[in-house]
């Protein structure tokens, strides 16, 4: 089995490369998107620190300036998917990760799990039936256009939303599609990715999602739910994550090693960039499991 990992990263190149080294270790492909807002040159750093045998499998995606909450996040992810297609990388799975993530289990264990399951791992929650968004806008995220960023341009954001509501400019969700929310981080089969890349040829569809709010928690979820039958997807992410009340991802520190080792996920989002001891502890754990796994596979 071959996996392509997409890593969206925007700071702390040394921590990102530490993650990338683990992802490359079993001969898989890694597509790295390095945020254009960060002027640091990660390519050269990668050449220096990954001068091992697998560095040819690290690909650099065209860079976008990513702003949290808007379309740029999806645009960067799509650029990575298109790169996988252009480079004709034949992969069984594509897994989306962030640069602040880390592994909880070795890649070999993940592969064994994925080949046994053979499904897509993506959280898809219908906002009309269940509550997924902790706080803030729910359906307004896609009923109205959002041209401004709520974090940096709160006044304009709220002004536009209020006037669209007053004027009754509610949009219709694209026909055939049902909106689904879910965590940004997913693991999809190669065949599902191919279907997605066909779907996004539809320019009208893209235009609709471009002005939704936080499309990275809506776009892929909606499209995958549309083209993959329910029994072929698992409503869960491969990544362990937790949100705070303010909607920020919980950060894990040096003292969280024991807690994280209890989690039955393959990745964790997100580690503090300064938590070196935690990373070393996880490395240790990965090595131990990897060793045990090798012994089992030799014996069987």
């Amino acid at each position: 089995m071959r996996i392509a990992f997409i890593v969206l990263a925007h700071q702390h190149p040394d921590q990102v490369l530490r993650l990338v080294r683990h992802l490359l270790a079993d001969g898989d492909e890694v597509v790295l998107h390095w945020d254009k807002n960060n002027a640091e040159d990660i390519r050269t750093q990668a050449q220096v620190s990954l001068s091992g045998c697998h560095s040819a499998k690290l690909h650099f995606a065209p860079r976008y300036k990513i702003t949290w909450g808007d379309w740029s996040m999806v645009a960067a992810t799509l650029a990575c998917l298109q790169l996988i297609q252009q480079q004709k990388l034949t992969v069984d799975y594509v897994v989306l990760l962030s640069g602040a993530d880390y592994l909880l289990k070795p890649i070999r264990v993940l592969k064994q799990f994925l080949s046994a399951q053979g499904k897509d791992f993506i959280e898809c929650v219908n906002p009309e039936r269940e509550r997924w968004v902790v706080q803030g806008l729910v359906q307004d995220r896609y009923w109205y256009h959002h041209w401004f960023n709520w974090r940096h341009q709160r006044g304009l954001f709220e002004f536009c939303l209020a006037w669209q509501k007053k004027l009754g400019l509610k949009r219709r969700f694209p026909r055939e599609l049902t909106p689904y929310f879910g965590s940004q981080w997913w693991g999809l089969r190669g065949s599902t990715v191919t279907q997605l890349l066909v779907l996004i040829q539809n320019k009208r569809l893209l235009r609709f999602f471009k002005t939704t709010w936080v499309p990275d928690e809506l776009f892929f979820q909606t499209l995958v739910a549309f083209c993959v039958p329910k029994h072929e997807r698992v409503n869960q992410s491969l990544t362990f994550y937790q949100f705070t009340e303010q909607g920020n991802a919980l950060t894990f520190y040096n003292d969280h090693l024991a807690f994280l080792l209890q989690q039955e996920f393959f990745f964790v989002r997100k580690l503090s960039p300064y938590a070196q001891q935690l990373r070393a502890g996880l490395d240790n754990h990965l090595a131990t499991i990897g060793q045990a796994y090798r012994i089992i596979s030799i014996n069987t």
Binding site: T251, Y253, N254, D255, S272, Y274, A275, Q277
Partner: peptide, 8 residues
């Protein structure tokens, strides 16, 4: 403060 820095 024994496991996390001031920056954290």
């Amino acid at each position: 403060c024994d496991t996390r820095s001031l920056r954290e």
